[in-house]
């Protein structure tokens, strides 16, 4: 599904990714772990096309398409979803309006008919319900006045409604209490644990991986993948730390 080959990327003049190579197949969940400043969030932004993150070398192919040639909204329509570490507030725009316009923009791009208000609300109600978010919250402006945990939960509701092929989840677990962590973990499994989907989980800690079992764990350090293993690698990292690993 996703092939990243020898990816180099700068933020401003500063090289952050330095030859990252990684492949994800449909049906797989990959976790990327690594110390602060390793380039984990940069990887998420580069893959989703954030302005200011400049690719200097390498290639990324997504379902056979040159991902780097696409605009951010085109990447979204192609099936790529970025779960934000810090979800953004949009005053005056309700979640319902935001998501309906976003989803219909994606559908239009793909040549599909737009969802009517009724059809959309049905999907939104299902997804919100499954994540324990009431509809009143969906009618409130996007992330305005939401707690940290509510924002992350809202990201998962968005993911459920948009139903992407590939989700890159950037520290979706940070700021969550134990119960919320479980809800979010269940959400990821329910929405994304499917034979035709894949997930790239970016995380500092192994605790989310108790709920979302990764097929592969990668260590990102110094802008490239330094080690790859199965789920047990996360436990090892938790026990020994990144320093031990680097040594």
């Amino acid at each position: 599904m996703l092939q990243i080959h020898n990816l180099h990327a700068n933020v401003g003049d500063k090289p952050i990714l330095k030859g990252l190579t990684l492949s994800l197949n449909a049906g797989e969940i990959h976790a990327i772990m690594g110390p602060n400043g390793a380039g984990k969030s940069t990887l998420g932004y580069v893959l989703s096309g954030r302005p200011g993150y400049e690719v200097t070398e390498g290639s990324v192919t997504f379902n056979g398409q040159d991902l780097l040639a696409l605009e951010p909204h085109e990447r979204a329509a192609a099936g790529l979803f970025l779960g934000f570490q810090y979800p953004v507030e949009i005053p005056g725009v309700s979640n319902v309006q935001f998501l309906r316009e976003a989803l219909n923009a994606q559908r239009k791009y793909r040549g599909e008919a737009p969802l009517t208000g009724g059809e959309f609300l049905k999907v939104a109600r299902e997804q919100a319900g499954a994540l324990g978010m009431d509809m009143d919250m969906l009618k409130r402006p996007v992330n305005v006045g939401f707690s940290g945990g509510e924002k992350k939960r809202n990201e998962m509701v968005q993911m459920g409604i948009i139903d992407p092929a590939l989700a890159i989840l950037d520290e979706t677990d940070s700021g969550l209490d134990i119960d919320a962590l479980r809800t979010v973990g269940d959400g990821i499994n329910r929405i994304m644990r499917k034979p035709d989907k894949a997930v790239l989980l970016i995380t500092h800690y192994q605790r989310l991986l108790d709920y979302v079992k990764p097929d592969f764990v990668h260590v990102l350090d110094g802008g490239r993948i330094t080690r790859t293993g199965g789920a047990e690698l996360a436990l090892e990292l938790e026990r020994d730390g990144y320093k031990e690993l680097a040594a």
Binding site: P51, A77, F84, P87, V88, E101, A102
Partner: peptide, 14 residues
């Protein structure tokens, strides 16, 4: 803000 723009674009809006 750039953050707002990118957030909306990452969800599919041009």
């Amino acid at each position: 803000s750039d953050d707002q723009m990118f957030y909306a674009m990452a969800r599919g809006l041009n």
